[in-house]
Amino acid sequence: MREPADTLAPPPNVRFRRMRPEDLDRVVEIEKDGFRHPWSRDLLERELAHAWSTILLATEEAAGGGEGVLGFIVFWLVHDEVHVLNIATALEARRRGIGRALMDAAADAGRRRGATLATLEVRRSNAPAIALYLDLGYRQVGVRPNYYADEGEDAIVMVLDL
């Protein structure tokens, strides 16, 4: 039996907002901590500048005041489709429901803007992410062979009807 990933609801003090340029250092840090082949700072800056791209942050009030970034999701809204490009949660925020909440927030943003479908690709070896996406209602519709050129790993293509 498959154990649902990231099943906890996020704490009630978690808020969502669009990324700003001053958030870039923290987002780069989360990205580097989360992936063997992280997106570059330049790529994240370009996504921030594209009108069709949204980088949504999950934040909470930091212990000493201010705001702490817990994770982020990068998605595009193209016609009636939300396409999730990247999602990462800070090491200290994992297993708190942040990834699930970010995925839900992206789907909700798409629905509000008329999207009827959400799509993503995920590494075949990323079992925790696949479990989360299945738990959210995504289904596998295909495979992109050698999609991740760094290791020649296949991508599982998943979709969710919104």
Rank of each mutant, 00 (worst) to 15 (best):
R36M: 06
R36Y: 00
R36D: 10
P38Q: 07
P38E: 05
P38L: 09
W39L: 10
S40D: 11
S40A: 08
D42F: 12
R46F: 08
E47F: 11
E47G: 11
E47C: 12
A49R: 15
A49P: 01
H50D: 11
H50A: 07
W52M: 06
S53A: 14
L56R: 12
L56F: 10
L57C: 13
L57F: 12
T59K: 09
T59L: 10
E60N: 04
A62K: 02
A62V: 02
G65P: 13
G66W: 07
G66Q: 09
G71H: 02
F72V: 04
V74L: 14
V74E: 02
F75M: 12
F75C: 08
W76N: 08
L77I: 15
V78N: 03
V78H: 06
H79D: 09
H79P: 00
E81C: 13
V82R: 00
H83S: 05
H83E: 09
H83Q: 12
V84T: 13
N86F: 04
I87A: 13
A88V: 11
A88W: 01
A88Y: 05
T89N: 07
L91S: 13
E92R: 13
E92G: 04
E92T: 12
E92S: 14
A93W: 03
R94G: 00
R94Y: 00
I98T: 03
G99E: 04
A101I: 08
M103N: 06
A105M: 12
A105S: 15
G110R: 02
R112T: 13
R113N: 11
G114I: 04
G114F: 09
A115H: 08
A115P: 09
A118Q: 09
L120V: 05
L120D: 02
E121Q: 08
V122I: 12
V122G: 07
R123K: 09
R124S: 13
A127T: 14
A129H: 05
A129E: 07
A129Q: 06
L132K: 01
L132V: 10
Y133F: 14
Y133Q: 08
L136V: 02
L136K: 15
G137F: 06
G137D: 10
Y138R: 02
Y138P: 03
R139I: 05
R139M: 03
Q140V: 11
Q140M: 14
V141R: 10
V141N: 06
V143Y: 03
Y147P: 01
Y148F: 06
Y148P: 00
D150C: 00
D150T: 04
